[in-house]
Simulated assay, not measured.
Amino acid sequence: MASETEPDAVVFEAPAHFRIYKSGKMDRLHRPPCLPAGVDEATGVASKDVVIDAGTGLSVRLYLPKIQEPSKKLPVLVFFHGGGFLIESADSSTYHNYVNPLAAAAGVVVVSVDYRLAPEHPLPAAYDDSWAGLLWAASAQDGWLAEHGDVSRLFLAGDSAGGNIVHDMLLRAAASNGGPRIEGALLLHPWFGGSTVLEGEPPAAAALTGMIWCYACPGASGGADDPRINPLAPGAPALEKLACERMLVAAGQTDGLAARDRAYYDAVAASPWRGTATWVESEGEGHVFFLEKPECEKAKQLMDRVVEFISAGSPA
């Protein structure tokens, strides 16, 4: 720790996102406004917050689209936000303004998990919270889920670190006895890394991933080759164990993570996994562009692909 007379040195700064000091503390520079739950005027989607673990403070935000047919049950989508495990939240404007139109367009009940953040709560806290949120959603304890949700049609989705969480959830579901059946998984610009730079991967992107990972998960074995951040590392759980029937992996062509995302997709598709995988690449777009400019044509196209993926398994 820095002394009272010695300034705490900055060891890393992601401009407009966060600043990390030698002492281990962090300044969150990216603080979008938190929006209250309620009825979204643009989409008619209703939302509410539910605390599911008073001990940890774990909560979820539920989204219910306009009910067109009261007798029809809707698929349930569990969503995990991004932010490098360090920033963002389920109630931030970034994600509230993305999930509302997602719930409306796809016709799904969404459970957006507000997991705890590092460094105050180092990993695996976010994974453990996300698993608790998934199990809670699958149990349909809430009235909205019980009345309107079809938990036999369960989907997982997440962007960046949230996409990484989706991968971890699929492995946990496979390893658990009687875990929830997951129909589909959407990994949107998932955050993966590794100590060896891949072809087409900017070395700076690989180094940045490794640095953030070790900060968020200081106890990680293998550093950037911990299987949770590098699912292709030697000794990582076999991809054939992924507990979903269908998968969509999306990347932005100019994203520094695109090479990792493609390598993950290729490995899943080439594995003995018995599901079907789909690759979606947005030409000329960077990391999570669909959150930053949701009205652009490429973001609308990606939303269409997400909706198409979810509706593909709907009964006729």
Rank of each mutant, 00 (worst) to 15 (best):
F85G: 00
M1L: 14
P234M: 03
A157S: 14
G133S: 04
K293F: 00
G44A: 09
S311I: 06
I310M: 10
H167P: 12
L145T: 10
V280K: 13
M169G: 00
A157L: 12
P231A: 03
W279L: 09
S152F: 00
A37Q: 07
I52Q: 12
A206Q: 12
N100V: 08
D150Q: 06
L123G: 00
P7R: 11
S160A: 12
T94Y: 04
S71L: 02
L171S: 01
V268M: 01
T5F: 05
G133K: 09
R172E: 00
S314Q: 08
W279Q: 14
T276V: 14
L291A: 06
S176K: 13
G82L: 01
A175K: 07
R260K: 14
A42W: 15
D49S: 00
Y215G: 00
P36W: 12
G55F: 09
L302P: 04
E201N: 07
F290V: 02
V197L: 11
G210R: 00
S59A: 10
A137C: 01
E285P: 00
Y95K: 00
S139A: 07
A9P: 15
G57V: 00
A103K: 08
N97E: 10
V78H: 15
V109L: 11
K66L: 13
S23L: 02
G313V: 14
E281I: 01
E295I: 05
P7M: 05
E245N: 15
G252R: 13
P32Q: 06
G284V: 12
G179F: 04
A174W: 09
S176V: 03
L74K: 10
E297A: 13
P190E: 08
F79W: 04
D27K: 06
S311A: 11
E297C: 02
G193T: 10
A236V: 11
Y127E: 05
D150M: 01
D168W: 08
L58G: 12
Y215F: 15
D304W: 05
V76W: 08
L135F: 01
E308I: 14
S71C: 11
E245Q: 15
V249L: 07
V306A: 12
N230W: 00
L188G: 05
R305P: 08
D27F: 04
V108A: 07
L102A: 13
L117Q: 02
L154F: 01
A157K: 02
R28V: 02
A175S: 13
A174H: 10
P119Q: 13
A206C: 04
A126L: 05
P237D: 04
P124Q: 03
C217R: 04
E41Y: 13
R181V: 13
S311H: 14
C217D: 06
N100R: 12
L186F: 05
K48D: 11
G83W: 03
G57S: 12
E88T: 09
R228S: 03
D49H: 06
R172W: 05
C244S: 10
V76P: 03
A125F: 06
T5S: 12
L117R: 06
P36H: 03
P237A: 04
P7T: 10
D91L: 02
Y21K: 13
V166H: 04
Y127K: 10
K48H: 13
G219D: 09
A251I: 11
P231S: 09
I165E: 07
V11M: 12
Y21I: 01
A138C: 08
P190R: 11
